[in-house]
Amino acid sequence: MTDNPASVIDEGTYTVRRTIRIAAPIEAVWRAATEPEHISRWFGRTVLDGAGPGAQGTMTFPDYGAVPIRVEAMDAPHTVSYRWGNDDALGRLPDAVDEETSTVFTFTLETVTDGTQLTVVETGFELTSDPAENMASHGEGWVSELDKLVALLEGARGAEGAA
């Protein structure tokens, strides 16, 4: 499996960023980052009411519960942005994204010699009740979740129809 660096937390801009490389074609990484059935294989169980900007639904994690999520923007196969709830929204708005406390994460994909480079940037932590704690938690989360994505896609290399 490709060894990738950890997330970078920028307290001045309230962002978390992580750039990884995946030995898989951009089309496979795009599907894994945008199609609910593929997202559910490496991230949280994802259900959306449609495709493209404006689609909304939930992402459910076993020990955490359901998190509201909405597709904000999409430029296939290079960028997709999602707005999602965080700890501040738990128990308050289970079926909708809370504009006042949500964060936005954007996946940017680029074809490179050995596959695809994916950068995630999550912003909006200044809107949360504990920005430093939330950035630290999400920084660790992006390491865990994106490492699962790398393992899934690199393990599926050569398999027809892989994520």
Rank of each mutant, 00 (worst) to 15 (best):
T2P: 03
D3Y: 05
V8S: 08
V8E: 14
G12A: 07
G12I: 00
T13R: 15
T13H: 14
Y14S: 04
V16M: 09
V16I: 03
R18A: 05
I20F: 05
R21Q: 09
I22V: 12
A24S: 05
A24M: 00
P25S: 03
A28Q: 13
W30G: 09
R31K: 12
T34C: 03
E35H: 13
P36C: 13
P36G: 14
P36M: 12
P36H: 13
R41Y: 02
F43Y: 11
G44R: 04
T46M: 15
D49H: 07
G50T: 02
G50D: 00
A51E: 10
G52Q: 13
G54V: 08
A55W: 03
Q56E: 05
A66C: 05
P68I: 03
P68G: 10
V71H: 10
D75V: 03
D75W: 00
P77N: 15
H78V: 07
T79I: 06
T79Y: 08
T79A: 14
V80H: 12
R83C: 07
R83Y: 12
G85K: 05
G85D: 11
N86S: 04
D88R: 06
A89C: 04
A89N: 14
G91Y: 02
R92N: 10
D95W: 06
V97R: 11
T103F: 12
V104P: 05
V104D: 02
F105Q: 06
F107M: 09
E110F: 06
T111P: 01
V112H: 02
T113S: 12
G115V: 01
G115Q: 04
G115I: 03
T116H: 08
T119C: 09
V120Y: 11
E122R: 06
G124K: 06
F125T: 01
L127M: 10
M135K: 08
A136R: 14
S137Y: 04
G139S: 08
G139M: 14
G141S: 02
S144P: 00
S144E: 10
D147F: 01
V150W: 07
L152V: 06
G155E: 02
G155H: 04
A156G: 15
A162G: 15
A162I: 09
